[in-house]
Design a protein around this nucleic acid. Structure first.
Lengths: 280, 280
DNA sequence: TATAATAATGACTAACTGGTCAATTGTCAA
DNA sequence: TTGACAATTGACCAGTTAGTCATTATTATA
């Protein structure tokens, strides 16, 4: 573990315990057993550290869910996989999830707020797409109802798992939520919120070709030793500049690079970029 | 508006915008147009201010809900009334609700945390009792499921109303939630969480006779001019010391004192105390 | 071993925090 | 107009914060 990773890991512990504001750089360096100066060798500021932590977690969070969902062929199991991916990650990274759950927006840097907003809308879009696939027979307004319901269930159970720290059977929780979603889809009729809100939910973030290439390059950096990943990434970059490969090949290449979080994230953003392109 | 109320009102605005920690006493006094010294004439410390704000809101919040629920004869409408009372209060006091929604626990005074926990469990008990009455045919484990579901719905919609600040039709939202609760009660079978958790949800706080009397005295203080309230409060105090009145009279006296928040709160705590007594 | 390059330190600064209190201002009865 | 009392002020204190930088320790290289 590099010193940078050490700082991030220990910071997450402290942030989860005391909060972002109330944790001082001093405390962080003490827990890491390094000097204050050393901290500033790895991060320009406390804000940058917070940004790194959130960005790190959220990108791998989104990428994980996306992978879980995209690898599920059976439409009837999509929501289950989605939920299971969410809760597993939450349980795995309980400390981070606590920060995320509790610290909503206050006193965060503007850029960070915007980034968080982007991630939230990515998450919303993922959940929405799951609902649209698994409950395709529903009208838009009732899909929105389902969205709110499932979101609520997730919030409630997250708090249960994280705050109360009680042992929970994730599979059972997911099955219970899926059951409830199913019966709501089947029997509910009253819509609570205008379906116009659907648009506001998952505002597409701007993704530039350059941003995707940067992500691919990072993936290459982190997988220097793995020729399969590197070659796949280079081919993908080429195809971004001059599209000629068939979709099936691209999907294969994307699967090749999904070896770690950085690769999963690059793959996710690649697809988003492509989808946006083809939509135009 | 007294200066104390002014400080509280302006503080709520600032806390909702920047958070409890990030708002300084300086900022508060500036917004109020008073000096720093003046602040400390009305509050011993910043902590005491925060405590006052939370205590003020929460006691009236709980008391309001309790009144709404206890005055509803039709069991089928209990949940609706409960939800409507919750959301109305949230919309009314959006700034406070934001604080409450966002600021979960970090770096708060121990006493304050305990107080918050007490209020939360009062809230939980209220919701549970509503569920137990309106869905009395359900087994305990499915009542717990309902509790989690409704809690989730409330969280989701609260965020929608407060954070996104969109115009919302409260009645429609409440009807939609009640419908979903009904559907879940009717068709759901998978329980996600052991029903043992029911006990942990609404741990009864300790209520002493003295505490209730103090509340009654405060009510008298705030309603000096109203002989009906004063007389009722005194009779209630007497009956606490030497119980002799029939329940129906006590209920009447309690209704008499429910003229303002302080009275509602005293009435709520009186009943809680009585219920605990009779349960022993 | 000697030298260059890199990593790490911790005393320091300037800004801000919650909280205090001697000094000032405002009020009102005599 | 005076004087007693209460209300109000803001300079001030001790403590903490994020962030800096001259100095020192460690490592790699020749």
């Amino acid at each position: 573990m590099t010193k940078k990773q050490l700082i991030m890991a220990k910071s997450i512990e402290l942030f989860a315990e005391y909060g972002l504001e109330a944790t001082s750089v001093q405390q962080i360096t003490e827990r890491c057993g390094i000097s204050k100066g050393a901290f500033y060798l790895y991060f320009k500021s406390k804000d940058e550290l917070i940004f790194s932590i959130i960005d790190d977690f959220m990108s791998s969070f989104i990428a994980n869910i996306e992978q879980a969902v995209s690898s599920q062929e059976d439409r009837g199991k999509l929501l289950y996989d989605f939920l299971y991916a969410v809760f597993t990650k939450f349980e795995e990274q309980a400390d981070f999830a606590k920060i995320f759950l509790k610290e909503h927006s206050f006193s965060l840097n503007r850029d960070l707020l915007q980034t968080l907003k982007n991630y939230r809308s990515m998450f919303n879009r993922l959940l929405l797409s799951v609902i649209q696939k698994q409950y395709s027979e529903l009208k838009a307004d009732m899909q929105l109802e389902l969205f709110f319901s499932i979101n609520g269930f997730m919030k409630g159970y997250s708090e249960f798992i994280l705050v109360d720290q009680l042992p929970a059977d994730l599979e059972r929780i997911c099955r219970a939520i899926v059951e409830k979603a199913g019966i709501i889809a089947r029997y509910a009729h009253i819509s609570s919120i205008s379906e116009d809100y659907l648009e506001a939910l998952g505002v597409e973030p701007e993704i530039s070709k350059e941003a995707v290439i940067t992500l691919l390059k990072e993936t290459v950096q982190e997988n220097k030793h793995d020729p399969l990943v590197c070659e796949s990434a280079f081919l993908l970059m080429e195809d971004l500049e001059k599209p000629q490969l068939k979709d099936v090949f691209i999907e294969g290449l994307l699967n090749n690079i999904r070896k770690n979080n950085s690769g999963k994230w690059a793959a996710y953003m690649y697809r988003q970029y492509k989808m946006k392109k083809s939509g135009e």
